[in-house]
Simulated assay, not measured.
Amino acid sequence: MINKRPPYRNTGAEKVLWGIARKLVEAGHSVTIFCPTPADRESETHPEIDFRYVSTGGGPDRSMIEFFLKGPRTYPSVYRDVSPDLVYDNPSPFPFHLAHLYGDAQRITKLHGIYRRLAFSCKDHPLVKVGTAVGDELYRLFRGEVITTNSLSTAHRARQVFTTDSNRIIANPIGIDAAEYTFSIRSDEKHVLSLSELRTRKQINVLLRAWKYVESAHPDARLTVAGDGQQRDSLERLATDLDLETVTFEGWVTEERKHELLASAAIYALPTLYEGFGLANLEAMASGCAVVSTDTWGVRDYLRDGENGRLVPTKDPPALATVIDSLLSEPAQIERLATAGRETAAEYSMAESITREVRLLEQIHEDGDMFAEA
């Protein structure tokens, strides 16, 4: 299994890979994970999983870039040592191409997103922008592979790139365990939460600009921005420049603190440019928040405007402000959307998604047929 970050890092693509790896071990399979070295707070081990690390440094972007630059030097020796039956590439944001060229093991690709031109507006680092856009187009060279996707949106976009007469695309939507989240509707709290990595793609700057309008209409409302990332300093400067008085930046939070924040918020806002699927929205829905997000890929797979949440256009602070203002002014609307949102969150199960993925891998392994029926 190949991943551009340590698989136990608490982000969507990594959660999926880590869950699949542990499920495979439970089923009696031998699992090796090829990935960058972990940061201190990410470190976790599993007694029955073999980790082969590529030495990298710096933040997530630098570590990922170094992994793709250094990884090909050591991959052949790791491959020969492990002698895998299956190679599972978890390419987010782009594939580990040597895995699809070297060796004769069967290969499976797990897609968490297809950015294409969106890479230039969603990614932070120039090399990642170019690498993602080019990497997506290189999927056209893939032949005879099974591609599983994390959502219907990603499957749809994949079909625009892959040659589907020589590759098989299977949509396997991911999810969460809704039972792990305390369902608590706090419609009278006037607390708005945004919790994500502070990166360009998440567009928290749009939320801050929208909050300027919200704050003037609801001086008793408060906004919590939780999470860390390359944009944190610039976002804090923007909040200062806008003279925002009711915004708190929490920084990186533990899982326990994340659950506390979700349970205390009435509204969850994520004006993202693009999601492969968007687990953060589902977590907020499971917790009793009325979710306001953008009408974009991934999000619209499960969020229906006015039914179980609210959708707004991307890059539109006034539209976002209008919706948040409407919700804060009508607690009954928050309660209705939050109740429907919890029902939606329960429909998408990470455990079921992982079980489907493991069964597919086992069938490919047993049958030796890349296009066996799932």
Rank of each mutant, 00 (worst) to 15 (best):
F120W: 13
P219T: 05
A210C: 13
L270G: 00
I65N: 08
V225S: 01
F68S: 07
E180M: 08
V130H: 06
R140A: 10
G103D: 05
S264R: 12
K70M: 10
N167L: 12
E352N: 15
Y8R: 04
L320Q: 04
E145Y: 11
N172T: 12
D220A: 14
I2Q: 08
C35N: 09
A133L: 11
D295P: 12
L262W: 00
L303M: 10
F96L: 11
G57Y: 03
P6F: 06
E250F: 04
A158Q: 03
G229N: 06
R342E: 11
I65V: 09
R140L: 00
D50T: 08
R310T: 01
T148A: 06
K110Q: 14
A280P: 01
Y115L: 12
I185L: 09
I2G: 10
R232H: 06
W18S: 02
G229R: 01
T11C: 15
D61I: 02
Y8T: 07
E197I: 07
Q106H: 08
G58Q: 08
S184I: 06
D81K: 12
N308S: 08
F68V: 04
T355A: 02
A39T: 11
A39H: 14
K15E: 05
N90Q: 13
R62A: 07
P126L: 05
S194I: 07
L127K: 00
S194T: 07
L303W: 00
M64F: 03
C122L: 13
S121E: 15
H125N: 13
S216E: 13
A345G: 03
Y274V: 04
E275L: 03
R22W: 02
R107S: 06
P38I: 03
F142C: 06
N90V: 01
M370F: 12
D104T: 15
T56K: 08
L98H: 00
D228M: 00
E48I: 02
L337W: 04
N3W: 00
G306A: 03
K258H: 15
G131A: 02
V225Y: 02
S153W: 04
V358W: 00
K4W: 11
Q230D: 14
L303I: 09
R222E: 10
A21D: 09
S83R: 15
L270Y: 00
G276T: 04
K202A: 01
N167Q: 04
V134C: 09
S43K: 14
A179E: 15
R52I: 07
K123Y: 13
G59E: 15
E357D: 14
N90D: 13
P271S: 05
D165I: 05
F183W: 12
R232M: 12
T296K: 04
A345M: 05
A280C: 08
S83M: 06
V358T: 06
V82Y: 10
D136W: 09
A210E: 03
T240E: 15
Y102I: 00
K70G: 12
S349Q: 07
T32E: 06
T164K: 04
R300K: 12
K110D: 10
I2N: 08
I49S: 07
P331D: 07
A346K: 06
G251I: 12
N10Y: 14
T200W: 01
A321F: 03
D233V: 07
E145L: 11
H112K: 09
F142W: 11
N172K: 11
